[in-house]
Computed example of a mutant assay.
Amino acid sequence: MNATGRLTEQQAAFLLQPISGKRVRNLRGMSHLEAWDVRRQLIRIFGFEGYTIETQSLDLVAERETKTGDRSRWTIVYRAQVRLTIKAVDGRPITVFEDAAAGDAVNQPSLGDAHDLAMKTALSQALKRCAVNLGDQFGLSLYNNGSTDAVVMRSLAYMGEPVPESEDAPVGGEPSPQGEPSGPDPEPTPPAAAAVPPQQVRAAPTAVPDPPREPRPGAMPAAGPSERQAALDAMWEAARAVDFMDGLPAQFQAAFGHPIEQGTAAEFRQARDLMTGSAAA
């Protein structure tokens, strides 16, 4: 995939992963993400310079004072409209999201603190509503009764013509502060056989090959030397690590529209990353 002017293959694959339940908070029975976590995820996926947040408007809606004796309590409400711009790695804008939200501060003893809290709440809520357009990593699935199961799963915009396996770009896992994600090492290439003089060559006995075996769900396919086979092995290894061997064939067909036997190296990597990313913090 050409990263110029659009998301990279790694970014798109990561955005299609289900959200980690460890990031979800619950308040009065409602599942949500915290604003600091949304900003962290924007940095992790797009980089420090890969997005901008602009305040389009910030308006005072209400200011109410309640007196109890000689003490005042303040309730403040603000409305904010925010624009979130996502950029490609070359700095060009890819897409823009705008949304608005209201935020309040109730029964606060300090007028200044009440205004500050209400403004921050409105701005944070508006940002989260913009970011949810980026899918499950930004809380879209939480609108489905608080579920952390992916609701996007795939996007036709990133499923173009198959790329020859020798040109497949590796799909990375979730970024981690401890280091960059790494995929499985390629299968070693066997050394070339030494040349044998023609007069020393003897005819080898004819062997009858074993009939091909259909892969069984839950069975680990035999390793092979090709890049596609290495990606297939890595996918099954990830399925075994998260105890998803039996469910993988059906889930793969649902996600990519064909059985595992017809899958490409890129699809195997994406399936592997979905399984490993679902268990990541």
Rank of each mutant, 00 (worst) to 15 (best):
P175Q: 06
A122K: 05
N133D: 12
G173M: 02
R129D: 12
S155K: 00
A169M: 01
S176C: 08
P188S: 12
P190Y: 12
P186M: 09
P198S: 10
A192M: 09
V201M: 11
G183M: 04
T206V: 13
L123G: 14
M153W: 14
A193E: 14
P177A: 10
N145H: 13
K128S: 11
P198Q: 07
K128T: 09
G172H: 03
P190Q: 11
A157K: 04
A157L: 10
A126Y: 09
V151Q: 12
T189V: 14
P162F: 02
F138M: 02
R202T: 13
L156W: 08
E174K: 11
V163P: 00
G172M: 12
A195E: 15
K128R: 14
P190C: 05
L134G: 02
E165L: 06
V151I: 15
R129E: 08
G135Y: 00
G139H: 02
L156I: 03
A169F: 07
G146D: 08
D168W: 04
C130R: 07
V196N: 04
Y158F: 10
A122T: 13
Q125M: 13
V196W: 02
R129S: 09
S176Q: 06
S182T: 15
P205C: 02
E174D: 12
E161N: 01
E187A: 10
Y158P: 00
S141C: 06
N133V: 07
S182F: 06
V132L: 11
V163Q: 00
P191S: 13
G183Q: 02
A192E: 14
P205L: 06
N145T: 14
E180L: 13
K128A: 15
S166D: 15
G135W: 01
E180G: 09
D136T: 05
S147E: 02
P186W: 11
S147K: 00
Y158K: 00
A193I: 08
D185Y: 09
S147N: 05
P197F: 02
M153P: 01
A204W: 04
V201Q: 10
G179M: 09
Q125Y: 07
S182A: 06
A204R: 06
M159N: 09
R202G: 13
V201D: 05
R154W: 11
S155M: 07
D149E: 13
A193C: 03
L140R: 12
G179E: 08
P184I: 11
E180R: 07
L134Y: 01
L127M: 12
P198R: 04
A131E: 04
V201T: 05
Q200G: 04
G139T: 01
A204H: 04
A131N: 04
P198H: 09
L142H: 06
N145C: 07
L134D: 06
L142N: 07
P188C: 07
V152I: 15
P177C: 01
T189W: 10
F138D: 02
L123D: 11
S182M: 11
N133H: 15
T148V: 13
P162Q: 01
R202H: 12
N144C: 06
P177L: 03
V151R: 04
A193W: 05
P191L: 10
G173C: 03
K128P: 08
G135S: 05
V196H: 03
R129G: 09
S176A: 13
A194Y: 01
P186D: 13
S166T: 11
